[in-house]
């Protein structure tokens, strides 16, 4: 158990370390900070002077550890595009993305799980065939087009919901929330729906597949034979056993929710991290890109680790597998 924990932790740290190296190489070799600070007309002597002052003439390995140390303290330098400390900009933008991603994922669970159960139990009904068909469209619909359709229908033609921005936000310390005002909630509806469409379809199909598998098991037949109501069999026996993989995969999907958030934020001009990332890519804002890379890696690695560990804690079969060969995929 302990050795497995340590092994997983070591792997995660290794991944993070590699990502920081990549971020450092990006930072060090793509944007020349000397030229961007002094301007293209500076003389070679001026550049050498500043290079010495900033410690950029030190051996690469020394510079790397300097960068690592700064990164661990949350110092990512100045954004080329905005001229502000990267860390402060990231912190400002984070609440918008976190609120959007969480709402989207919650929506996906609330709709996806019941729909999955329904289509598994009443597989032959017209309603569930229809739901399955719609879910396939959900998987095939690029999120930007989904967002555009929503804007076209509900903002432009019906005028019900705002088409861009976060509405009014309320400041709670450094956290700005859109949950507290009417306009903030109205602005959240379409972006959250856009983000969740793919996830709803995925969770639904997953729950359905798991339910169908579990319901073929002996203990379900036995429970039915004991004369338990089908409701009790479905909820207490079948659903429970499907939830472990569902929760795992949903956790892992949080990463892709954040990736899709970038696109959704761009469609709805939602002032979050994703929009910031796309703008930084378009402007080749290297310090911002490097910081975003590290930030996303930390988020993803942490989630993957937590999911793996929870899996390990919940399902005892993994233990023997882990001892035989590597972690469970």
């Amino acid at each position: 158990m302990i050795s497995y924990l340590l092994q997983r932790l070591g792997q995660s740290l290794l991944v993070l370390f590699i990502v920081v190296i990549m971020a450092f190489l990006l930072f060090r070799f793509l944007g020349d900070p000397i030229v961007s600070i002094l301007g293209a007309n500076s003389t070679g002597m001026q550049r050498d002077e500043l290079r010495r002052q900033m410690g950029l003439d030190a051996p690469l390995i020394v510079q790397f550890f300097e960068y690592l140390w700064q990164t661990m303290r949350g110092d990512f330098g100045l954004s080329y595009r905005l001229g502000q400390p990267v860390a402060r900009v990231l912190l400002e933008r984070a609440p918008a993305t976190i609120e959007l991603a969480t709402s989207g994922l919650l929506l996906a669970l609330i709709i996806g799980i019941p729909a999955g159960i329904y289509t598994a139990i009443r597989g032959r009904s017209i309603a569930s065939q229809l739901t399955l068909g719609v879910s396939l469209i959900g998987i095939s619909m690029p999120s930007f087009f989904m967002g555009m359709l929503l804007i076209w229908i509900f903002s432009i033609n019906l005028g019900w919901l705002p088409s861009f921005g976060r509405g009014e936000t309320v400041q709670l310390g450094w956290w700005s929330t859109g949950f507290a005002t009417r306009s903030g909630l109205a602005a959240l509806v379409m972006p959250a729906l856009t983000i969740s469409v793919f996830q709803i379809a995925m969770i639904m199909r997953l729950v359905r597949a798991e339910m169908l598998q579990v319901m073929r098991m002996e203990y379900i037949r036995f429970a039915k034979a004991r004369g338990l109501s089908s409701r009790s069999v479905y909820i207490h026996h079948a659903l429970r056993n499907t939830l472990v993989p569902v929760i795992t995969i949903t956790g892992l999907q949080f990463g892709s929710v954040i990736a899709f958030a970038a696109i959704t934020e761009s469609v709805f001009q939602w002032p979050g991290l994703g929009l910031l990332f796309l703008q930084s890519v378009a402007a080749a804002d290297v310090p911002m890109l490097a910081a975003y890379l590290v930030l996303i890696a930390v988020v993803f690695v942490t989630i993957n680790l937590l999911v793996d560990l929870s899996y390990y804690a919940i399902d005892p079969r993994i233990k023997t597998m882990a001892e035989q060969k590597g972690p469970a995929a």
Partner: peptide, 20 residues
Amino acid sequence: VQLTFPAMLVAVLIDGVVRA
């Protein structure tokens, strides 16, 4: 390492690196 990031982010990042 690459699987840690969704394909979308990887593609955007490669585009950004080439641009820079």
